[in-house]
Design a protein around this nucleic acid. Structure first.
Lengths: 371, 371
DNA sequence: TTGACATATGAGACCGGTCTCAAATACGCT
DNA sequence: AGCGTATTTGAGACCGGTCTCATATGTCAA
């Protein structure tokens, strides 16, 4: 039995020998269970201090069947959105006496599967997962079948009967679309970072994530309600970080009957819009109005400040962890989906569409000629 | 022995029974070691599939003394800087056959200590830590003493002889300061988010992090070289997320002999500068020039785009993990500190100080009167 | 001092996997 | 069929902690 990690760590047996008591007594003191006399307690603690004893949670978990640890798999470790959610998770978990360990899927279903395997292998007491796909979910079904509690964060999976905590993406998209319609827009694009081979939206089969589908439904519903025909013609997918954003956005804005407003799925897409507009010599909101999902720190200091859909991300995380802790503790009622509200924060990135501004200018020119 | 987690998971013994072989044979097949006949292999694998066997890595690690897992403790999970570093760590670790689990210290030494305890308890093969303080390091010394490999990411600890990977913060700060001096600035502030009771810099005893100390040294050295006296009078600390940033920045900018340029320690501080300037009715770069550490996505789309010190964060992470893997594998040479270079990316946030612009305006007025 | 009762302690089984080595089995040749 | 050799298999010890229960020890009252 070879150990490439250089030194065997100090065990309870070492401490027991040093303190002159049995392994069982030393374990009682160091594990804070059972009884021990004050004299023995002090002797054991002193020996542990001197030897540098560090508990082996592996052994403890093997025996107790519990790790007091929650495993969390986030979609994109580089996205501060998930950072905030993790802060909420950590706060709720720690308040309930649980530790949190994280893993990152990078929005890739295979990596998510590997992360689930790692965390299950470490026998975490429960899992919080932001699913990377509604199509590749076998590994999550297996978690459910194993009996280990699972909560979905931010996104749902239709045929997986587990708890979920999400924001009301449909209502958010409807509200944003209505705000743009009230400002005069009839050609409104929704641009999403979600992976897709074909950037042009053709139907639900292209959509991996529940959040994206809900938002599309919201945009389409609000547009149809306002009498706008074929609103889905302005929906684009795949505008993610790998340089596709600029291409998709510029093709859209340089096409016939271009949209006069964009609803961006997240801050990544909003940034791409900014960069593309600068390159095309267009400006917000004179040439294009913009609303973005998520109120990142910097969205209020751009010129102009961006109108955003603020999401209660910390609460998402906090609630997820609370529900999971309840499940771990043994609550067995039916799984449910908790839906949190969003807030539309109006800043200066919404204006009238360009053609309405031109009509106003023509009208003023005519008035000057008459007067 | 009570198990609140509802179901005992499937073990190798269950699979062995189902396949009609011994536990040792089933283990050989499922653990991919030793030998087994092709017929037995197929029987065991089929039984494992049917029963939903998921390896217990706790048991495996206990026996082998290895977990093939790297533990990472980041300073601030909400900062995309650390997200990028984690991506580098993950890529290098996975290439070497290791898994990565994360924990967040929130730049709090007590939380870092707890995170170290959790990850050491889980017997990770090694640790990568972004230390939250150069003063509270006992827990990291204990890691070192235990023989478990440890690499410091981004920041060093002076009396801890372990490997570290950092950026050249001193040289970065010198280069940025020189760029501002060349643009005419003689009053240059360095504003840091690092925790401090007193926002006014009085000496090294206030500084928790090696990066901050190095940057201060760089700003001061470049200023003194250019004949600027008492450059440290414009150094401010504690401008973090909790609302102190606005107060510190506005007091500084509204004081006598206010600075005409700011070097911001990170994007958080740069954002605070933007917000405060807007509130005070001042603009970049006419009233104040700005350079920020770290080239975040959004720094190139503000108006004006910000001059930044780009840091090779992914490489920081990647190198850290490579060094750690070598240590885990048994390399025993002397610990070393690997220093990576930064790049100054000039955009439009640097201009001449306001008083030089005024002198130019006066000179042009005089020329018009003559001509 | 003795007996009753409460508290502290130690021995041994167990968690689920790995590893070693002896025994069983398989295979090929005479 | 028997023998020699190679391969496969199973039994049991072990990792480091927890838990149960029998035994030892301590305390108090008669």
């Amino acid at each position: 039995m070879k150990r490439t990690t250089s030194k065997r760590l100090v065990t309870i047996s070492d401490v027991a020998q040093s303190a002159g008591v049995s392994k069982a007594t030393a374990a009682r003191v160091l594990g804070s269970y059972g009884t021990a006399s004050p004299v023995v307690k002090e002797k054991v603690r002193e020996a542990a201090r001197k030897l540098g004893y560090q508990a082996n949670e592996l052994a403890r978990s093997m025996t107790t069947g519990k790790s007091k640890t929650i495993g969390v798999i986030v979609g994109d470790i580089e996205n501060p959105y998930f950072g905030q959610a993790v802060r909420g998770i950590s706060d709720a978990a720690h308040a309930a006496g649980f530790d949190v360990i994280l893993s990152n899927s990078g929005e890739d279903a295979a990596k998510e599967k590997a992360a689930v395997r790692v965390l299950m292998g470490k026998r975490v007491d429960g899992l919080i997962v932001t699913p990377a796909s509604v199509y590749e979910t076998q590994h999550l079904h297996e978690v459910q079948r194993s009996g280990r509690p699972l909560v979905l964060l931010d996104r749902t999976i239709p045929d997986l009967a587990v708890d979920a905590v999400v924001t009301d993406d449909r209502q958010a998209a409807e509200a944003a679309t209505r705000a743009l319609i009230e400002a005069g827009h009839r050609r409104i694009a929704y641009i999403s970072a979600t992976e897709s081979d074909d950037p042009i939206y053709r139907g639900p089969h292209q959509i991996n994530l529940s959040t994206v589908m809900e938002r599309i439904k919201g945009v389409v519903a609000a547009s149809l309600s306002a009498g706008i025909e074929h609103p889905e013609r302005y929906i684009r997918l795949g505008a993610n970080r790998r340089g596709e954003g600029d291409k998709i956005i510029s093709e859209l804005l340089q096409g016939a009957d271009r949209p006069t407003a964009i609803l961006a799925s997240d801050n990544v897409v909003a940034l791409e819009v900014f960069k593309t507009l600068r390159r095309l010599g267009m400006s917000i909101p004179q040439d294009l109005s913009l609303i973005a999902f998520h109120d990142a720190d910097w969205t209020s200091v751009t010129s102009p400040p961006i109108t955003v859909i603020a999401q209660p991300v910390y609460d998402l995380g906090f609630e997820s962890a609370q529900i999971l802790v309840r499940r771990i503790t043994g609550v067995g009622d039916a799984p449910r989906c908790r839906v949190l509200a969003t807030t539309l924060i109006k800043r200066q990135s919404i204006g009238a569409p360009p053609e309405i501004q031109e009509n106003r200018a023509v009208f003023q020119n005519n008035a000057a000629k008459i007067g």
